[in-house]
Design a protein around this nucleic acid. Structure first.
Lengths: 220, 220
DNA sequence: GTAAATTTTTAGACTAATCTAAAATTAATT
DNA sequence: AATTAATTTTAGATTAGTCTAAAAATTTAC
């Protein structure tokens, strides 16, 4: 079994690799884990010895298949627990992450499977992120940024880029959440701000900063 | 906040004190925690410095109100999670303890409260142990041992003394579980074995070893 | 009430994970 | 190409929790 800390390093490296490709550098990991680069080097050596990642001095790290599988499993548990907290315990989507950071380290395959079943095998967490399957398959979202959505076509709000509490709480305040049906009616060419209309005839105004952090898909 | 390890020591001492009164000795704690007496002494000093227990060298330890509150809260979380696993995820009563040992350390009062609400404020866990309230009150069970139950009076199976998997699985095998309605029809004076009848007219034979590990209350 | 047995504590060492400060390597700049 | 800047690694120390072995205190036994 792997320690809480090892799991967190693997998860951090996995998420960095998702965005930036292979050969993740020490400082980037230190930034995510909120620790010092020297500590990262130590842990990297340990994980490398355990064949969970490939490491060449000064050249960054790349997860092995084994390391990747562990990271994906942690992500799976994290997102399943977020669903549980959101769907069953009525937590807000801005409240689930912190608690799931703890729950993701609970070690019981049977628990994970039963939780998955209990939740009805959800495909996405409350932020629209895909939930890996038991075997580690992740169906990548083909969402587009709201800022890139074509005018006057109906879309479904399907995810967020920024997961920060302040952003999520802002969306709470303007009553925008996953599943909202909306379309872009106009764009201010100067600052990129969007005029939005919802299927409930509500008119909203999104700054470009907000719009580029919202993911949507076409409404069928 | 208190570490996983500190919480486990407090819980162990609390449970020992429940049975044996105050001034719990080092060896007993070591036995429960599955560690060496020297390690226990070290941890005792630490918990004593934090005013979680009263300690006099060579004289054993007694939890303070503060230490007791923490222990009770861990027990509360443990039993609530057991309920969740049993009621919602359909785990067997012989499977819930191990997983709850991990879940009891999740740190979020809001989560505990919402879980409690989700479960309908249960009073007992799947083994019949009472669940402490949020404020730390534990309603003591007034169950009696099946081995002491008066003849021919109907009782409800309400708890177990032995929580071991082997015992719970034995009860599974003979299809005896909490809520069963049964009465003692006869007792073998030589070995203490009991003849049992259930409300479904099933006839069973319990050795004294089994009967004294089953807790019942009068059926109204 | 002294000796033996048991329990408990101390002393010193170990592992996991972290840190600071300094050294080594790589990348950027002129 | 040489210097500066940034990144990464090493060296040595620290904390939490554990261990073994030996010393100290308590309890038990005669």
């Amino acid at each position: 079994m792997y320690s809480y800390t090892e799991e967190n390093y693997l998860k951090a490296i996995y998420k960095l690799a998702e965005r930036n490709g292979d050969n993740i550098n020490t400082n980037a990991i230190a930034e995510v884990i909120q620790t010092k680069p020297a500590s990262v080097t130590d842990m990297i050596k340990k994980l490398s010895d355990k064949k969970l990642l490939a490491y060449e001095k000064y050249k960054g790290v790349t997860l092995t298949a084994k390391g990747s599988k562990i990271a994906i499993d942690v992500v799976r548990k994290h997102r399943l627990w977020e669903c549980f907290l959101y769907e069953k315990l009525q937590f807000g989507w801005d409240e689930v992450h912190e608690i799931a950071e703890q729950l993701e380290h609970i070690n019981s395959d049977r628990l994970t499977d039963k939780l998955d079943e209990f939740l009805g095998y959800p495909s996405h967490d409350p932020h629209g992120d895909p939930i890996p399957t038991k075997s580690g398959v992740i169906k990548k979202n083909n969402f587009i940024y709201l800022s890139d959505a074509p005018f006057n076509e109906w879309h479904v709000m399907s995810g967020v880029v920024d997961h920060s509490n302040s952003f999520l709480q802002h969306l709470n305040k303007i009553e925008v959440s996953l599943g909202c049906i909306l379309r872009v009616t106009d764009k201010n060419e100067y600052d990129g701000a969007l005029s939005i209309e919802t299927d409930k005839k509500r008119k909203l105004h999104f700054s470009n900063d907000v719009a580029k952090n919202i993911l949507v898909k076409q409404h069928k």
